[in-house]
Design a protein around this nucleic acid. Structure first.
Lengths: 263, 263
DNA sequence: GAAACTGGTTTCATTATTTGGAACTCAAGA
DNA sequence: TCTTGAGTTCCAAATAATGAAACCAGTTTC
């Protein structure tokens, strides 16, 4: 699977480079050989080699001696465990997602913004699950998903500009808003309306309604969406779920705000 | 919760330092202030500061402007998603775990070795829905858990010595094998026997039987355990599950070996 | 069977980055 | 107002990263 939506990141120092490589390896989604990495890397052989060594040494990558391939290492899983618990809305939102899930019976996504992209931090499957791209931990583009648009629309000026700058604007489907101006207009109307729709903009036949999760001070913490397919629902029928969606988003926000980490 | 079992890692370069700090932050298990980190860090203020900046900038850490605290960042969750899918036995072993779980009705752990420590990559409780990072990603010591001992016992010479060197040998309970020699003897007998037991060595009242997951070439890929409490089971009654446990471990190994990543 | 090739690893002088002591800023508290 | 402490910035010295080229297997080709 190709990944046309890569985020850009300012390159700070050696760690920056190392982490860029780490990302690169992860992007492949399969074990990858040294030569392959070298091919689409701007670094000279020796540099790449040493960087990979270091990462492997550190357990961030794991090297398969037999196949001579690199893959993301288990140390990441360990680190992510804490990250997920502390920095994501998922643990807090769980009961609310459960409730919403049982009452609507469609696929539910909880997502947060990570470097301009959408990161799904939790998910509930529909009663009749439909195959699609997303699981907890997966990422998606910001400009053509319901959650992405809902979040970006409600960011403050600076953060929003930054997020927009990071979009790749790849035309996934005929409905994708693939230009910056179209996207800006869309954000405007989303902010006015309060919810965002995905009108088959990312995957054909997949639609959703999404609401931002806003703190009392108006900061976006993430977004929540109800997803379905055009076979089962229309945009209109999804709209009827709007009050429930907004209520849940609000509940999550409230829980999150009253949540204090055990010191 | 205190963490007496810290692994040691050879410090390579700047990335090494950065990643060490990342680990440090994660270890706290809660948002942490600059000053706290500075306190138990060997780095001077400026250095630590810049390293934190870089990590935050890279999304590996996230900084709470309001509270002025650092926590592991969401980028980790994203990376871990691929790591878990590619480098862990979890996705492959899932159906086998399910089967074992329903037939024994006790807690099941699937673990792999990460830098001398045990990393749980999947788990079954009596009845638990599938969620990823909430249960996968926890770590435990290698020298006093069933899975840890099962794995280390079956490592080859070099890797085993390395693993032993990384153990902290903290006396968790009266039954903990807290010396290197005692541990070596134990490994010997585990290798002879084929399964490992946790005789309340990590937590009082908790016992388990664990089996290594071995490739046909004899390489350990991980371990599988059935855990219970002394109230419900004895070591003897756990032993009766031995054939089933070994069978499952073997099944997982076979599935893993015949698994080829889609190229 | 030798020669060229491929894919990976190592060397080493050059170069750029990291380092950390100290100075600075900005609040909050006495 | 004066102190104190947390956080941030400076800059010369120390250190680590760089990358061209050499090297070292195994393979394939001639």
């Amino acid at each position: 699977m190709a990944t046309p939506d890569a985020p850009q990141r300012s390159n700070d120092g050696t760690v920056g480079k190392a982490l860029e490589i780490l990302d690169r390896v992860a992007e492949y989604g399969r074990p990858v050989r040294f030569a392959e990495l070298l091919a689409d890397s701007s670094h000279p052989k020796a540099t790449l080699y040493r960087l990979l060594q270091t990462l492997t040494n550190q357990g961030m990558l794991c090297f398969d001696d037999l196949q001579q391939t690199y893959a993301p290492g288990l140390r990441l899983v360990r680190l992510a465990h804490t990250a997920w618990r502390q920095s994501s809305l998922a643990p807090i939102a769980r009961p609310h997602l459960d409730a919403l899930s049982t009452s609507v019976g469609e696929t539910i996504h909880l997502a947060q913004l990570d470097q301009g992209q959408v990161l799904y931090v939790d998910k509930r499957n529909a009663r009749t699950p439909i195959e699609m791209f997303s699981q907890a931990g997966k990422v998606g583009p910001g400009y053509c998903t319901g959650v992405g648009k809902a979040i970006i629309a409600h960011l403050d000026q600076d953060a929003r500009e930054d997020a927009i700058r990071r979009q790749a604007f790849f035309q996934h489907t005929p409905h994708t808003l693939a230009t910056e101006t179209a996207f800006r207009d869309e954000l405007e109307s989303i902010r006015a309306d309060g919810v965002a729709f995905d009108r088959e903009e990312h995957e054909p036949g997949i639609i959703c309604i999404a609401a931002p999760i806003l703190s009392t001070k108006g900061r976006v913490m993430g977004a929540l969406s109800i997803t379905s397919s055009t076979r089962r629902q229309s945009l209109e029928s999804l709209t009827s779920l709007r009050p429930l969606l907004l209520k849940t988003a609000n509940d999550i926000a409230e829980t999150a705000e009253s949540w204090q980490f055990p010191t």
